[in-house]
């Protein structure tokens, strides 16, 4: 049945394309945003904050201390992280007793489903960010799996300021998404999970994280 469906559909479509008569209008290229690094950081920060994300701009020397200071005052049952990444190694080296315990994501989801759905916080690195529409780029990987940025109530994302691009198109181009091949899953994330399905009233924290904290390491 399915093999026929494929052949039938394609032959109907081809019968049409064979007749020609397709006008494809030209569209002039649009000059994208062109901001300097400081402006990109500023715009990203503003856009993310509008979407209720918390943004901390910190130096590459102080970011770990800043993170620890902010976590120390919270009551969290754990911080999900990916061992074997530079971020994971940095956390392991610097972690202390009085902080939410580090929870490594090392087993397949089938063996740790409960833990993943019950942990209060998760921390991931980022592939970059987009200043124009205020979004982080995440490329989950074997070391930092997909659910890390989804199931915990608080998602902390660590972003290198140098990877903030003007536009989505620029990020695809300059990071060579096509050349290096798309990851199994890539994401743009612009804030904590939200909905406006009841009377268009915007509320945050539906099915995904209730909070998003972004550490921009400048």
């Amino acid at each position: 049945m399915t093999a026929n469906a494929r052949a039938n559909i394609l032959s109907r479509l081809r019968a049409t394309t064979a007749q020609g008569s397709f006008a494809v209008p030209d569209a002039p290229a649009i000059a994208g945003l062109a901001l300097n690094l400081e402006e990109r950081i500023d715009r990203l920060r503003r856009m993310l904050e509008t979407m209720h994300a918390e943004v901390w701009v910190v130096s590459s020397v102080a970011w770990l201390d800043e993170l620890k200071a902010r976590l120390r005052v919270r009551t969290l049952n754990g911080l999900l992280y990916g061992p074997g990444t530079p971020l994971g190694a940095a956390l392991e080296a610097a972690w202390e007793e009085n902080l939410p315990p580090l929870v490594p994501y090392v087993e397949p989801v089938e063996q740790c489903r409960e833990r993943l759905f019950n942990v209060d916080a998760g921390i991931t690195s980022t592939q970059g960010a987009i200043a124009e529409n205020g979004a982080l780029i995440l490329w989950p990987s074997a070391a930092e799996p997909r659910l890390m940025s989804l199931t915990p109530g608080l998602h902390i994302a660590v972003l290198e300021a140098g990877t903030i691009f003007n536009t989505f198109a620029e990020a695809i181009d300059q990071q060579g998404w096509l050349e290096q091949g798309m990851p199994t899953n890539a994401l743009l994330v612009s804030g904590p999970s939200k909905t406006a399905d009841i009377e268009l009233t915007l509320t945050f924290g539906v099915h995904g994280p209730k909070e998003l904290a972004v550490l921009i390491v400048a």
Binding site: E107, P108, P145, L187, S190
Partner: peptide, 16 residues
């Protein structure tokens, strides 16, 4: 909030 780009199922070395 999310733009989700799915290119492949779970790979042998991936956890979810």
């Amino acid at each position: 909030t999310y733009f989700n780009m799915i290119t492949a199922p779970r790979q042998p070395d991936e956890r979810d």
